[in-house]
């Protein structure tokens, strides 16, 4: 039966079996389903962004052209959220990457009997965001937080600080939580990269008189370049979207100090039911993410 189906449906007119067509036909259903569940909501959001659509004001539902986008330009909270998103994303990725690199280099030379440490270091990576959020919320608590306790004991601060209620400190707190959560991911990726560097290349560098630092700069780092680019791009996309840790720790506050775009969209859509405007902000957000994604995909295709 399959043979008949293959012969009648998949063969070209001249009887030649076309494997490309077969492949296309086989993946078509999956593409159709994915297209529906990915493209449809995007198009729907784009469509909604042109409407004045607030669930609590059904009488005012109307086509509003680019009104939502116009409002966005003069909405100071939108710009604050965008600025916070960019700062938060790049800070978490940069610090996480640096820490992950240091950790990977440190455990790369670890004795075999301590290999289980690698597994332990990975634990933060598997902790769900909401748990990380609560964990750090209590660690940075103004009354019972362990961070204040240690800083006070070390004479770094003179009194307990309201980490989550000071505009400058709250961003530091949420970045610290994310870095703790994500550094093991970079470590994992970089460790894999380190294992792929041929020993003889390193040995050759040392034989040429290179120092440890020179070997790192001219041998190890170029080998790791691809992994560093891809993993950081991946995390830029992820952190651009990150919601649970910030929401749990600060709810976007104090004032708007840790309000990122995704938190702003959530508030507009699910607290104020302003679906039209939330969609417009979402469309801009997706556009920015798409640009980053294109860079990411191109990086994947590039030979580092």
């Amino acid at each position: 039966m399959w043979g008949r189906f293959k012969n009648t449906v998949l063969s070209t007119e001249n009887g030649e079996d076309n494997s490309t067509k077969l492949a296309a036909l086989l993946i078509a259903p999956a593409l159709a389903v994915m297209g529906f569940i990915i493209v449809y909501p995007l198009l729907e959001a784009l469509w909604l962004s042109f409407f004045n659509y607030q669930l609590t004001k059904p009488d005012e539902y109307a086509f509003a052209m680019a009104q939502n986008y116009g409002h966005m330009l003069k909405d100071d909270v939108f710009w604050i959220a965008l600025k916070n998103t960019v700062f938060f994303t790049f800070a978490t990725v940069f610090i996480g990457l640096l820490l992950g690199l240091l950790m990977a280099l440190a455990i790369d030379h670890i004795a075999e009997r301590f290999a289980s440490i690698r597994g332990l270091i990975l634990i933060p990576w598997v902790v769900p965001g909401i748990v990380v959020g609560y964990l750090f919320m209590y660690m940075f608590d103004v009354e019972v937080g362990i961070i204040n306790y240690f800083l006070l004991k070390a004479n770094i601060i003179s009194k307990y600080l309201p980490w989550l209620m000071k505009e400058d400190l709250s961003m530091i707190a949420v970045i610290a939580a994310h870095v703790w959560n994500q550094a093991p991911f970079y470590m994992l990726m970089i460790t894999a990269g380190l294992k792929a560097i041929p020993d003889d290349v390193k040995e050759a560098a040392y034989m040429e008189g290179a120092s440890r630092w020179e070997e790192f700069c001219h041998v190890t780092l170029p080998y790791l370049k691809g992994i560093l680019v891809i993993s950081s791009l991946l995390m830029i996309i992820r952190n651009f979207n990150n919601f649970p840790i910030i929401w749990t720790m600060t709810g976007g506050g104090p004032v708007y100090a840790t309000t990122t775009s995704v938190i702003y969209i959530y508030r507009e859509a699910f607290e104020q039911y302003n679906l039209g405007y939330a969609s417009a902000v979402g469309v801009v957000w997706v556009a920015i993410l798409l640009i980053v994604s294109v860079v990411y995909v191109r990086s994947l295709q590039k030979d580092f």
């Binding site: 609590t56 209620m165 505009e167 104090p254 004032v255 104020q272 039911y273 302003n274």
Partner: peptide
């Protein structure tokens, strides 16, 4: 209470937070 209540709360309480944190 009303259709603008959530937005009004956000604006007013953001103001309160700005008062107490700055």
């Amino acid at each position: 209470y009303g259709p603008n209540f959530a937005k009004a709360s956000e604006i007013l309480m953001s103001g309160v937070q700005e008062i107490i944190t700055t």
